Amino acid sequence: MAAVAAVLLTSACGLSAEAPSTGPLVIGMSLPLTGPVADRSKPGMEGYQYWADEINADGGLLGRQVQLKVLDDSFDQQTAISDYNRLLSQDKVDLLLGTFSSDLNLAVAPVAERYRYLYVQPSGGADEIFERNFTHLFFAQPATTQRLPNQFVSLVERMPVADRPKTLALVQVDDPNTSQAAGIFESKLAALGVKTVYDQTYSPDANSFDTIANSIKQAAPDLVISGAVAGDGSALVRAFQKIGFSPKMLYQENSPTEPSYPQTVGAANTEGIFTPIAYSTEAGFPGNKAFVDGYTRKYGTPPGEDAANSYTAGQVLAAAVKAVGHLDQDAMAAWLHGNAVPTISGELRWDATGRPQGELLLGQFQAGAIKIVAPAPAATAQPVLSKPDWR
């Protein structure tokens, strides 16, 4: 287990604990820095670090410099559980920030709740996490998986009946978020007359998609919905390209927002691919332009969703700390339940379970960039309803 940032300071924490008034304020987390989703975790870590550097340049939190203590869980649930138990019981960190994916947060959120620590997670919107009615859990995106299909399903519903896809293939990594989304898509699209002709779940460590791609080609769906988390999404597209199968419509979760996605699948081959968006560099929310400019200067590339989600989680945590004025975990959670927080992803407000009450955007690759195509008030382009063939 690798510690990215080792912190030797031991601080007094626990249930509604008061922290010492001197020394760094230590924020603990465990991230999948190695393993199958490491490519997504790296920009997520950068988002956290950029937030911490910005906070420290502005004087820190509660007059103390912020220090991140980061452990590596290698995308393993048991390791993540062990890491957060260590951070809380042995290292006694002052605050927590969340890990990535529904799979890991499903395992880790109960640990934070047991210690009654505020737990703001940057990703992992599966409803299963929030159905436990935890009081200290908050999701730092505009909406959970429950609302993820809304914009795309509405788009299909607005299409002339004759032009709608008639058949659907569902393929998703084994993860609570993608599995829930697949079920919602299937149900909502069936109500519009779209028949599911293929449905397959694969292991998170899958590295070959040839068999799946061939099976989907045989099923010949008009629409493919791919519940991916990282490089698995681009690997599926490459497998489609290899066998010459190009669906009329393709919707992928998560993978298309990776900065390396266009290069991996071929820039011209991104055209027409739909994806849900929790964050856009083009959004005019307060602080977003400064974040985009500063992050780009520091890391040489504009922030993607993973970096932005981490930064947003940091914004939520900082808002609670500043509002309460001391490290009372219960008071910070209560404040978030009763107040909205302006972030680079928009104003976030939560219900009693920590579910945010907003909506995700629908993005689509057009001319090499992801444009917002729904909802209409936020749109920067009109949707293209038929994906071109691979080039």
Rank of each mutant, 00 (worst) to 15 (best):
K217W: 00
T211E: 12
A213W: 12
M249I: 10
I243D: 01
S208M: 11
N214C: 01
S246H: 09
A220N: 13
L236R: 08
N214F: 08
I216N: 03
I225T: 07
P221T: 01
A213F: 04
P247W: 01
F209T: 01
D232M: 05
T211A: 10
Q252T: 15
Y251C: 13
Q218F: 12
I216D: 00
P221A: 00
Q252L: 15
N207Q: 05
A230T: 15
A220W: 06
Q252M: 15
I243R: 00
A213Q: 07
V229F: 14
N214S: 12
T211P: 04
P221H: 09
A213V: 00
F245D: 14
V237K: 01
V229G: 07
Y251N: 14
I243W: 03
V229N: 09
S234P: 07
G231F: 08
F245C: 06
F209G: 02
L236I: 02
D205C: 12
G231M: 12
A220M: 03
D205S: 10
V229W: 14
K217Y: 11
V229M: 07
T211Y: 03
V224Q: 13
S246L: 02
S226E: 09
Q241K: 08
I212L: 00
A239T: 10
Y251A: 11
S215F: 04
K248S: 15
N214P: 10
I216K: 00
A239F: 10
D205W: 10
F209E: 03
A213E: 06
K242A: 11
N214H: 06
I216Y: 06
S226T: 05
D232E: 06
L236K: 09
D232Y: 07
M249F: 11
A219V: 05
A219C: 10
Y251T: 14
A239S: 14
